[in-house]
Design a protein around this nucleic acid. Structure first.
Length: 243
DNA sequence: ATCATTGTTATAGC
DNA sequence: CGCTATAACAATGA
């Protein structure tokens, strides 16, 4: 399920629909469904956890939330949020948040924030972090304006990798640690993607859902931390708290 | 069987 | 008005 890397894989899988004309639409999504009928999807791309279907003069944004899924040429025992019939194939989307965007994408999306986009810019991220020195790193990493595509698992793994305690304050991180955190936000996300592609993601987790630290055998702590109040796993012995 | 969760958004509330 | 807390949504496996 979907953090940024999963969205990349979903999007690769759905590329067959790029260039295809939509013949029929239904489902319980509240968007103006008729607007899609007879239109061609020009391009399918992502921004972090958003999947974007670009049409001539609007874009359909699909967010998979926690449990979003899709079925191609099949369905499951539930009413789809959106059903699309193309010339050849059918697509069912479930448990997703769907919205129509009117603005040109370059106006509303900061591509430099997307850790899995070629436009990802570490310097831009650093500048944004400078503006929130009092934030905890556990929250900062989940901030989609800064690290678009980073989710809770990636957050936990990055902090373990760079040996930083999740409750550390952004402004208290030594410059080198800050650099490392920013760098790993992208680097780790690409590794996550590669592991996910090979179906070996879980066995590469070091700290997320783990009981003991692979470095020193210490007990892994688990709590809901930060303003985001998300499940956090860390090793009190090897992750330093900067505050 | 119940609970927790890879996430976000709308609304309520202060 | 602006920030924050809460609810809502949803599927699946432990």
């Amino acid at each position: 399920m979907p953090e940024g890397p999963s969205l990349i894989l979903f999007t690769e899988d759905l590329q067959r629909f790029a260039g295809q004309k939509i013949l029929e639409v239904s489902g319980n999504s509240k968007i103006d469904q008729q607007r899609l009928v007879g239109k061609k999807i020009k391009e399918i791309k992502t921004w972090g956890k958003h999947m974007l279907w670009r049409f001539d003069d609007f874009t359909v944004k699909i967010h998979f939330l926690m449990f979003g899924t899709y079925y191609i040429n099949s369905s499951k025992d539930a009413k789809p949020r959106l059903y699309l019939r193309f010339q050849k194939d059918e697509l069912n989307l479930y448990s997703t948040a769907i919205k129509i965007l009117e603005e040109p994408l370059d106006e509303i999306y900061d591509w430099t924030a997307d850790v899995l986009n070629p436009s990802w810019d570490a310097k831009a991220a650093r500048k944004k972090l400078k503006a929130i020195p009092d934030a905890m790193v556990t929250d900062a990493l989940l901030n989609q304006e800064i690290f678009s595509g980073v989710g809770n698992i990636i957050k936990n793994e990055i902090l373990f990798r760079i040996k930083v305690h999740p409750e550390s304050l952004v402004g208290a991180l030594p410059p080198r640690k800050l650099t490392e955190m920013i760098k790993q936000a992208s680097v780790y996300s690409y590794e996550f993607l590669a592991w996910k592609r090979e179906y070996v993601l879980k066995k590469n987790w070091q700290v997320h859902t783990k009981k003991t630290c692979p470095r020193d055998g210490a007990k892994i702590c688990k709590a809901h931390l930060g303003k985001t109040d998300r499940r956090t796993f860390w090793c009190e012995a090897c992750q330093v708290k900067y505050e």
